[in-house]
Design a protein around this nucleic acid. Structure first.
Lengths: 138, 138
DNA sequence: TCCTACAATAGACAATGTCTAAAGCAAGCG
DNA sequence: CGCTTGCTTTAGACATTGTCTATTGTAGGA
C-alpha cells in the first residue's frame, strides 16, 4: 500500500489527503468496488471529499495503470486494485460477487486469422458467469 | 424476419405496429445497435413510437431469447439479433465497431476446478479488443 | 514564508435507462 | 361486426452513473 503511494509520488503525483484516502480505500479492500462505493468509504475517512475528486482520482489511477476498470454488469464500472497480475473474472449472476480467476491457455491464440477481419487484436477479456455457493445455498 | 414475427406470435405475443417495427429494425440490420439507435430507426418508420416502448420491446425480445444484449463498452447496451448461434465479439478500441467471431476451443474448459471457488459456472463471454483496418489506416 | 500551478469543490449538466398513470388498441367473443 | 377486456403505448418524471465548469484551496518548490 505504501508501495502504491510511493510509486505514485515517484511519478510526480502531487500527494493530497484526498488522493491518499482513495488509494487507501482501494488498497485496503481486495474487492471490486464501484466508484460510489469508493466514494462512500472515502467519505468515512475524510468527510469533505467530493464525488468529482473520487471520479478524477480513480480515472488517474487507471491511466497510471495502478488499478483496472472492469465492467461485469452494464451498471457501474468497478475498480480492481489487482492491476499487476493479468487475470479474468468470475461473476455471480445473482448477487454480482466477483472473483479474480486465472484460466489456463491463451484465448488470444484461439482466434484464427480468418476470424480477425484485418483487426490488430491486442487484448482479450473473459468473463465467466455462474452462481456462487452462497446464492446456490439460498 | 417474418420467421421472427411468426415465432413471436406463436408464443402469444400480441402483435402491434410498434413491436413489428422494432423487430424489423433489428432484423434488417445485422449490426449491433444501441437502444437509442433502434429507437431512431423505428421512429423513421413509425414517427409516433415512444422511447419507453422501444426499451420495453427490446427487453421482451431479450427475455424471449430472440436477441442478445451485449455490453462491449460501458456506455449503452447493444442488441445483437444473432441470438441463435453462439459467438463472441471483436471490438475496435478506436471506433467501437463490433464483429461477431467464433474462436476455436471452449474457454469454459480452460477454467480449472481450483479456480471456480464453488461457483456453478454456466457461461462465458469473450471480448477481443484491437484496432480495425479502417482505424489502422487513418 | 510566498507563489504558482495543480487539485478539490459544489453543483449543473449529460447520457442511459426505468417507472407511472392515463389513454389506446388487439383479439377473442357473442 | 361491434363490444369488452386486459395487454400495450405514451409522455414525461425520475433514477443512476458519470462529466464538466468556474471558483476556491493547497502542495511543494524557490
Amino acid at each position: 500500500m505504501s508501495d502504491l503511494l510511493e510509486r505514485l509520488r515517484g511519478r510526480g503525483w502531487r500527494m493530497t489527503a484526498q488522493r491518499r484516502v482513495v488509494a487507501e480505500v482501494l488498497d485496503g479492500e481486495h474487492v471490486h468496488l464501484t466508484a460510489d462505493e469508493v466514494h462512500a468509504r472515502a467519505v468515512a475517512k475524510l468527510p469533505e471529499i467530493s464525488r468529482a475528486t473520487v471520479y478524477n482520482t480513480l480515472g488517474e489511477l487507471v491511466t497510471l495503470g495502478e488499478v483496472l476498470e472492469v465492467s461485469t454488469d452494464q451498471r457501474a464500472k468497478r475498480y480492481d486494485p489487482n492491476a499487476h497480475q493479468p487475470h479474468h473474472h468470475l461473476v455471480c449472476a445473482q448477487c454480482g460477487a466477483i472473483r479474480d480467476v486465472h484460466p489456463v491457455g491463451n484465448p488470444l491464440a484461439d482466434l484464427p486469422d480468418t476470424e480477425r477481419f484485418g483487426f490488430t487484436v491486442s487484448d482479450v477479456e473473459v468473463t465467466y458467469r455462474g452462481v456462487c455457493p452462497n446464492c446456490a445455498a439460498a
